[in-house]
Design a protein around this nucleic acid. Structure first.
Length: 632
RNA sequence: GCCACUGUAGCUCAGUUGGCAGAGCAGCUGAUUCGUAAUCAGCAGGUCGGGGGUUCAAGUCCCUCCAGUGGCUCCA
């Protein structure tokens, strides 16, 4: 038998030689990293005998496939430990996920105490270095083995006839599994249980399954590195940092409805200003339409049929009024309020109005998922020919915006959902136009099949915070439905009446979610242009207050947001407080500074102070702010 | 909305088998007037998430509601 290896070399081996032996001979020094193998593109156990000529390569934790194998083996370990702890538990399935693995059990609700026992059982198994052993059974033997577990019987029934039914033994525990696995539980010493929760069971009325989630690493130090990163992420959580920096808060009688505090409003106003500057340049006009509309408007727009479960509805004089969840109906009514000419198009109507969405209570999540929100929204009414150039302008703007904020972004093309307005052919066309614009702008994108809005397909912008988590913010939707439903038309150059298309779009998305992401992305270290307080002035002693106040006025006259921290506390303590508050610039004024007209400036994150002339300091900060630099 | 868990001072937390509600930080007052990450002392701050129940006695046990957290479902 001839085996070809990844470096192009070949080995002649006897049949039934294990993958491990072949790979060990091929790369003895790297052997400890190998946790499985790839034979002709198929992952296999290292212990698996090779029975034919072909291409063989190793899999390590650094390969995606190897990573998944380790996650899946970790899931088996959890199942083994849980069944040891609760013998009547029925394991169902335990696949790898994007961030690790889970295993679902048909069992009574778990308690934290159960989890502790499970962890101990896992540690015992790891210490015992139990091998994962594959066995292939007949279908009948497998059915007999799992007779007590109807979930497993269901999986067995799904295995195509003719395909082997394989199980893996880990010590006395046996699980139905296609494999492959790591050679032994020794590989799982970096396994960590992230949590447990109930999930929807199979059929209605069945008890929920209990899901145990975790993540595995081949070694403890790798796990510790991951846990450290998670701790950092927790420290950046906007739900903690936001109230701490007095940006926003939530109160019990208003679940999902944010309160913006003075510091937070500074940031929101800066975002607003950033967007409106662009609106002016890009030919938009602003409108403001009602927050409530009678039900009939939503019947026209389709919201009543497709979005009502997410709407707040109020009854007024025996009439139902819905709080608007989106701005589109108002824009449609304005467009349709008089006859329109093609000369008015593209008509770009921007509206930053509060929107209300009755999000399910369990989905609320700080600023990232709220019930009252404000989008940097606009509706652009266009002719067919104007669509693509407009889309390209928008994509360029999004690129510019993400660069300004220092955020990484990605696109998702969300296509026709299960229930939708209009004709499938219109949707196919709109989806193609969006895809073409993305390609023309040189952007890569994923496709979210069925994720579109009920009235239009969309390009969603996903932002990544610095810890790699993804959030949807901006959106560009190409809609042929709503203009028709509102009977909108314009008179073309040909004298005929035509229906416009409308592009619904946001750039930053909502102030709420975008600010939440920024808090986590910056970890509270705001760029100077966004920082609620840009400069904090510290007089060394009370004698220097007048000098400090003079500096404050000078900086304020220059347009900066400045505050003074008087001498009630010692200087080192005030410096510490400023550093903890992440103030970009700390300006100290004492005898020396007053004598020579300078200011001693400590830039956030640096340990030493530098002397500037007052004018020079003001000019440099103003410049950073004007250019929207990311760092002070 | 579903399942589990959590809720004690502004924040972080302690509070034993049911038996007098505590600490640190923040805040306030006073002293100190200080040179780049914590000066000292004192004071104040609590419907123990809300309501109901068991008990001689409830922060602690039970029921219920609310909010939050994690997942699920959802997500223009």
């Amino acid at each position: 038998m001839t085996i070809s290896l990844p470096d192009g070399s070949h080995q002649e081996v006897a049949p039934e030689t294990s993958a491990e032996e072949i790979l060990a001979t091929w790369a003895p020094d790297r052997r400890p990293k190998f946790l499985a193998a790839l034979f002709n593109g198929q992952p296999i156990d290292l212990a698996h005998p090779v029975r034919a000529s072909g291409a063989l390569g190793p899999l390590t934790f650094d390969d995606r496939a190897g990573w998944e194998i380790l996650q899946h083996s970790s899931a088996h370990l959890v199942a083994k430990a849980l069944v040891e702890t609760i013998p009547e538990a029925l394991p169902t399935a335990g696949p790898p996920t994007d961030e690790g693995f889970y295993y679902d059990f048909d069992v009574r609700p778990l308690t934290p105490g159960d989890l502790e026992s499970v962890v101990r059982a896992m540690q015992r198994s790891i210490a015992a270095r139990e091998p994962f052993r594959r066995r292939e059974l007949t279908r009948e033997a497998a059915e007999a083995m799992f007779a007590r577990n109807r979930h497993k019987l269901g999986y067995i029934a799904e295995i195509p006839a003719g395909e082997a039914v394989s199980v893996y033994d880990t010590g006395p525990f046996t699980d139905l599994c296609r494999g492959p696995h790591v050679p032994s539980t020794r590989w799982l010493e970096g396994v960590h249980i992230l949590g447990f929760s109930a999930i929807e069971g199979g059929a209605a009325g069945e008890r929920p399954l209990q899901r145990v989630r975790g993540v595995g690493f081949p070694t403890k130090p790798e796990l510790e590195k991951y846990l450290k990163l998670r701790a950092e992420a927790a420290a950046r959580d906007h739900r903690i940092l936001g109230p701490k920096q007095e940006l926003f808060l939530f109160a019990e009688p208003a679940p999902g409805f944010p309160f913006w505090l003075p510091n937070g409003m500074v940031i929101v106003r800066q975002l607003e200003r950033y967007v409106t500057e662009h609106l002016r340049k890009a030919g938009y006009v602003e409108i403001r339409t009602p927050l409530l509309f009678a039900r009939t408007v939503y019947e026209t727009s389709g919201h009543w049929e497709h979005y009502r479960e997410n709407m707040f509805v109020s009854r007024v004089d025996d009439q139902e009024f819905g709080w608007k969840p989106m701005n589109c109906p108002g824009a449609m009514l304005i467009f349709g309020s008089r006859s329109r000419s093609y000369r008015e198009l593209p008509l770009r109507l921007a509206e930053f109005a509060p929107l209300h969405r009755l999000e399910a209570s369990g989905t609320l999540h700080g600023l990232l998922r709220v019930r009252e929100l404000v989008q940097d929204d606009a509706h652009v009414f266009v002719t067919e020919e104007q669509i693509e150039p407009e889309l390209l302008t928008l994509l360029a703007w999004i690129r510019e915006a993400c660069t300004t904020f220092g955020l990484a972004w990605s696109y998702e093309l969300s296509t026709r959902p299960a229930t939708f307005l209009g004709e499938a052919a219109d949707w196919d066309h709109a989806e193609e136009v969006l895809a073409r614009a993305l390609r023309a702008s040189g952007s890569e994108f994923r496709t979210g099949a069925g994720e579109g809005a009920f009235y239009a397909p969309k390009i969603d912008i996903h932002l990544q915070d610095s810890l790699g988590r993804r959030w949807q913010t901006g959106t560009i939707q190409l809609d042929y439905q709503m203009p028709r439903r509102f009977h909108l038309e314009y008179q073309g150059a040909d004298g005929q009446l035509h229906a416009p298309a409308v592009i619904h779009r946001t750039i930053l998305g909502t102030w709420e979610r975008f600010t939440g992401i920024l808090i986590e992305h910056y970890g509270g270290r705001w760029p100077p242009w966004l920082a609620p307080v840009q400069v904090r002035v510290l007089p060394v002693t009370e004698r220097h207050r007048t000098g400090a106040e003079a500096l404050v006025s000078e900086l304020q006259d220059g347009g900066l947001r400045v505050e003074i921290a008087g001498s009630e506390e010692t200087l080192p303590k005030r410096v510490r407080a400023a550093e903890l508050d992440r103030v970009p610039y700390v300006a100290v004024v004492g005898d020396r500074e007053i004598a020579d007209g300078t200011v001693s400036v400590r830039v956030r994150g640096t340990r030493e102070a530098r002397a500037f002339s007052r004018a020079e300091f003001l000019a440099s900060v103003v410049d950073k702010v004007r250019r929207r630099d990311l760092n002070p």
